[in-house]
Design a protein around this nucleic acid. Structure first.
Lengths: 337, 337
DNA sequence: TTGAAAGCGCTAACAT
DNA sequence: ATGTTAGCGCTTTCAA
């Protein structure tokens, strides 16, 4: 293995000079620099990054805590994280937590064990709750997408409440008054905020909420499919359904059609996220487009700011959404209902 | 920061004893073990993993080279990798390469720079081509999914040729003879093998191949959509289309229906991969189910075997596929064609 | 501008 | 069974 020592010998300089040439080329004379670089080349020298990290007490590794990668939306967020991290010469340690808090805590320990500098958490949970972290220093974490209410760190999220509200307002404008909702996991802030937006819109329109039209789901197509069955065959069939994710909406679409009903003629359906498949479903989905990659990029930018002792400009970012109207929603057909 | 030295003082033993207690508890007496563990607890000691890695010359980090995470299939493979790595106390460094060879080489350099122990490559390219690696030692790499023809390392793949063949045989059994194909990227071994399987089946049935029915795609729904347009409006419309990925099949489905044609009554469609959305498309897709997570798990197992100087039992694994018949294929309707 | 030298926190001979 | 000690490869004072 070629070490810095061998390069130093080859170039006829000290190891300190080699180190300096590599880190801050401008503090050595052009002549030495040339000599050293030539020796590096000749020796086929590759620095031992672990030694560098050990000595400099920084790894440039970022831990990413994601409930599940096999979800189109998270996959896009991770793409954004990876891209931004790479650009700044940071690495991404990917951790699939399945939403389990003990495993999130275990992964966060990579920071206290100095194997990574910080964590990007995509769930509303603080994995450092019980850990011995140098007090005084800011928490080496950024919370994105699903965000804690009183996050002890910078956050990036969507205004889920008003996004949901605008989706429902769109349905109300089309004449719908009996609007069902397929929700996300019960305890998620995402669900809470989107339900609030749903209520906001209905309240503003003077529509009284029918709690039997609000069913739980878990963001998977399967759960959308199952919840839709209940809605479709229930005593009080809605004329429109708000699904808290496109994946659930795609499941719902299938179930509704299986019941011999048409989307949007019998039932309008709206989703959330605007995943790639949302425009290829039948019919294409009206949904909320989220800047998934941007969540990742912003989270990285803020985390690195924290790690490098810069104050992030804003510590609680709210990214913009967009209502995308496609063919899964239409005006209510009085003849049919 | 609490170091092993402080724990040693607290426990009244040497640092070596602390180290031993943590690594191989059975070589110290129960009494010392108890003392040490108590001191560890009292001091809130967290070992500095970078120091451990530095000293032991092993990181237990695995680099994963993936063309794009935002692809449902790769996302599942990565899930499998992460799960298996975690189980064996290895970490996953995720690298999105966009299929660029220079960036794959840059990431592979993490191994020569001792930041990771090995790489799992999901594309048919050897990123170590030009690097100074200790000769004699086996290449610290496993190639999975899309595999090099003469891979210099263990591999895990599907028998793409016979999988494609069985898909086409299914169509032929339904009476189809004019079968189009929407291919993957031109230079990919995946494409080559699947095209070979397609030819095998047609040749065996005595059907002469119409090259104008074979169109290029890039695995995205959009490319499936566009290629389908050409097939549908071409002079010699096929009665069935084989898409080399479910994502392209979903794009094709939409385009075919837009042309006022029915799937499967006018055109049968088959995909490849069996992604989650394949059973929620309209109609649900007939496809080849691949054990995506298993690719990841097997790749990890073989890589760790190589890294820990064990010979992997088999170095070229071929995982089984399954033909999944859903509603996107049916017997050819003579009245319509 | 360059070199000498200390030492980051830990493991693993080797000695006891 | 435990302790002593020599580094792993690098960065960074400090001195020249």
């Amino acid at each position: 293995m070629t070490t810095i020592r061998k390069v130093a010998e080859l170039a006829g300089v000290s190891v300190a000079t080699v180190s300096r040439t590599l880190k801050s080329p401008d503090v050595v004379t052009p002549a030495t620099r040339a000599k050293v670089l030539e020796a590096v080349e000749a020796a086929g020298y590759e620095p031992n990054m672990i030694a560098v990290q050990f000595r400099s007490r920084r790894t440039r590794n970022l831990v990413v805590l994601v409930p599940t990668i096999a979800n189109t939306f998270f996959a896009r967020v991770i793409s954004g994280i990876q891209e931004a991290a790479h650009q700044r010469d940071y690495r991404v340690l990917l951790c699939n937590t399945l939403g389990r808090e003990d495993s999130e805590e275990a992964y966060a320990r990579m920071v206290t064990r100095r194997q990574a500098d910080g964590v990007i958490q995509l769930r509303a949970y603080n994995p450092f709750s019980g850990s011995h972290l140098p007090t005084g220093a800011p928490l080496p974490m950024v919370n994105a997408c699903e965000v804690l209410d009183n996050a002890p760190c910078p956050t990036v999220k969507l205004d889920n409440r008003s996004a949901a509200r605008s989706l429902i307002e769109h349905l109300i404008a089309l004449g719908h008054r009996r609007i069902g909702m397929i929700k996300g996991p019960r305890r998620s802030p995402l669900t809470r905020d989107r339900v609030a937006g749903y209520r906001d819109a209905l309240d503003a329109a003077g529509i009284v909420i029918d709690e039997t039209l609000m069913l739980p789901g878990d963001f998977t197509p399967k759960s959308g499919f199952e919840a839709a069955a209940l809605l479709v065959h229930g005593p009080n069939r809605p004329t429109a359904i708000f699904c808290e994710s496109d994946e659930m909406a795609i499941g719902a679409l299938q179930r509704i059609k299986q019941a011999g009903l048409s989307v949007p003629d019998d039932i309008s359906v709206v989703g959330f996220d605007d995943i790639a498949f949302a425009s290829y479903s039948d019919p294409p989905l009206t949904t909320i487009s989220q800047p998934a990659e941007a969540f990742g990029r912003e989270a990285v930018a803020m985390l690195i700011d924290v790690l490098e002792d810069r104050m992030p400009e804003t510590s609680h970012l709210v990214l913009p959404y967009e209502l995308v109207i496609r063919e899964s929603t239409t005006t209510i057909d009085v003849a049919r209902h």
